[in-house]
Computed example of a mutant assay.
Amino acid sequence: MSRTIWDEGHEPGGRVVALAVALALTVAVIDSLLAGRVEVLFDVCFVLICTGVALLVHPRDFFFVGVLPPLLMLGIFGLFALSSRSGIGAAHGDGFLQALISALGHHSIALFIGYALALACLVIRRNRLLRGTITRGSATSRPHPPARPQAYHPTSR
């Protein structure tokens, strides 16, 4: 059986979360430098990052990626709201919370699409895992049958 993109995920959850944060923050900074604020470049890259980490993560760490997109966007825009409110399109007099909510509202479509694609990838990978086409340890072998319970034999002393 040939390996597919769904069979490839093998990275630990912590590593893919760190990768996603680094990539998203880098893209947000570059987009704000190029356009004056976070705009479409960030949105497109955010969707690609969410989908990519859903394909990279090891099956035992699906939860990390399942909750990542909204927390990632909230964290990125929270940093911008603290440091450079104009970088996320906030008005001059907006406070931290207003700037954060405005930024999340402006980028809600990217959040929705990125989250939906990440969850769809995880569901497809989970279903393939449950059908037995991939295993938790190896992407090409079938899962081993469960071990039979051993009969209890008290040891004589």
Rank of each mutant, 00 (worst) to 15 (best):
L41A: 14
D7V: 01
I30D: 12
A20T: 04
I101A: 05
T4G: 06
I109S: 13
L23Q: 03
G13C: 03
L41N: 10
R60S: 03
G87T: 12
L56S: 03
S141C: 09
P12H: 03
V21H: 02
H144S: 11
R136W: 09
G137K: 09
G14M: 08
V65F: 11
A99R: 03
L97P: 08
A18R: 14
L117N: 02
F46V: 03
D31Q: 10
S102R: 15
C45T: 04
L19A: 04
A20W: 01
H153M: 14
S108E: 10
I101M: 12
A116Q: 02
E39Y: 00
I76Q: 04
L130G: 10
C121E: 07
A110C: 09
D43E: 12
A18S: 13
I76M: 02
S86N: 14
L34Y: 12
V16Y: 00
A91V: 03
R142M: 05
E8I: 15
R15D: 00
A91G: 14
I76C: 08
I88R: 07
A103Q: 05
L34V: 06
R125H: 07
A20S: 06
T4D: 05
V27N: 09
V47A: 07
L55E: 03
I113C: 09
G105Y: 15
P59C: 01
S32H: 07
I88K: 01
P69Q: 09
I5N: 01
S83R: 12
G9M: 01
M73Y: 06
V29I: 13
V17C: 07
R15M: 03
L19R: 03
H58G: 03
G105R: 14
V47N: 00
T26K: 08
H10I: 08
A147L: 14
P154V: 11
L23K: 08
T51G: 12
S86A: 14
E39F: 06
M73A: 04
S156F: 13
A147N: 09
V29F: 07
S86K: 11
L41F: 12
R60V: 02
P145G: 13
S156W: 06
I88Y: 00
L82S: 05
Q98G: 13
